[in-house]
């Protein structure tokens, strides 16, 4: 084919493409129009802040705006990594996260298994209803309850006193912060977490139980050898996804519960960002810390997803 013909083919193809695009727009213009508000919303409230995160590489001053502020490269990141607080908040984030996983992750599985053994369906429903309730109580109220319960005249202190613990506002005690956080977290989430496992339990083939009974397995053995393997894929996926957000401890509960007295164990990356940014108005530095956290979270999530795909052929995308 000579050059001229080649060119004309490509021109024709291009024309064809434009024509197709026009036809598509003409046919589905209403659909694209319906999607327009969504595009505007995400550009304005999701993608614009992503662009705004570039102030992490600047010395941002609100008066000068982004265009007028000086670029400083990775200085804020380096400042952060060499900061005395870097290891403290990284350690706290990991400690709180890992403790919630170790104690909080198995809790809904155990509760779901227990519920599965309950044969009276009315009783089962009542227990489920009760266990879901804490999920709907707002974080402010949960933390308010924690605060009054653990005050030096609160009910938890009353009980601990019986075991010889000295009366004190427990939330001011740095070594008590993680247990308080984890235990209340379990209380909030255990019931709600069972939903997904209960769904997995209903998918187990009933004939497996019959076979196990014939083989003389008691209920405990059935649980161990039929039920648990049956929900194993669900457990694996949930665990991998949970591990993916290991550095993503939310700030809401932390900043409601912590105080300067407990920063040693309670201050995590996101609460540090909040304090440096919104309380001390250190815009660029806190943005850099936040960006570091977002990128790490994103990387972990992709990693977790890749592992999940390999292990169980299930993935987020």
């Amino acid at each position: 084919m000579d050059k001229y013909a080649e060119q004309s083919v490509s021109v024709r193809l291009k024309k064809n493409k434009i024509y197709l695009l026009e036809a598509e727009l003409k046919k589905n213009w209403l659909l694209y129009l319906m999607f327009l508000p969504i595009v505007v919303y995400y550009l304005l409230f999701a993608y614009k802040p992503m662009y705004g995160a570039l102030i992490a590489f600047q010395d941002y001053e609100p008066m000068k705006g982004m265009a007028g502020s000086d670029w400083v490269g990775f200085r804020h990141f380096i400042d952060f990594f060499t900061n005395y607080y870097f290891w403290r908040i990284l350690k706290n984030t990991v400690v709180i996260s890992v403790s919630t996983i170790i104690f909080g992750f198995p809790a809904p599985i155990i509760l779901a298994l227990l519920l599965n053994e309950v044969t009276n369906s009315k009783f089962k429903r009542v227990v489920q209803t009760i266990s879901y309730i804490p999920h709907f109580i707002s974080m402010v109220v949960i933390c308010g309850m924690i605060k009054v319960f653990t005050a030096d005249n609160g009910i938890i202190m009353d009980v601990l006193c019986l075991f010889g613990v000295e009366r004190q506002p427990l939330l001011n005690n740095a070594s008590a912060f993680v247990p308080i956080y984890v235990i209340s977290d379990i209380w909030q989430g255990v019931g709600w977490g069972t939903i997904i496992y209960l769904a997995a339990l209903t998918n187990i083939d009933q004939s497996l139980y019959e076979a196990a009974t014939i083989d003389g397995a008691n209920r405990w053995q059935q649980t161990l050898h039929v039920t648990l393997p049956g929900i194993e894929p669900t457990i694996v996926i949930m665990l991998i996804l949970r591990l993916g957000s290991i550095l993503g401890i939310g700030y809401e509960k932390i900043i409601l519960l912590y105080s300067p007295l407990t920063y040693d164990t309670a201050d995590v990356i996101s609460s540090f960002v909040y304090r440096r940014g919104l309380q001390e108005l250190d815009w660029s530095y806190s943005t850099a810390v936040g960006l570091f956290n977002s990128v790490i979270n994103f990387a972990f999530l992709i990693l977790a997803n890749a592992i999940s795909r390999r292990v169980s052929e299930t993935s987020l995308w």
Partner: peptide
């Protein structure tokens, strides 16, 4: 992925 707390606030 999000821009983070501070850029969101400034936005």
């Amino acid at each position: 992925f999000s821009g983070g707390m501070i850029p969101t606030y400034l936005n």
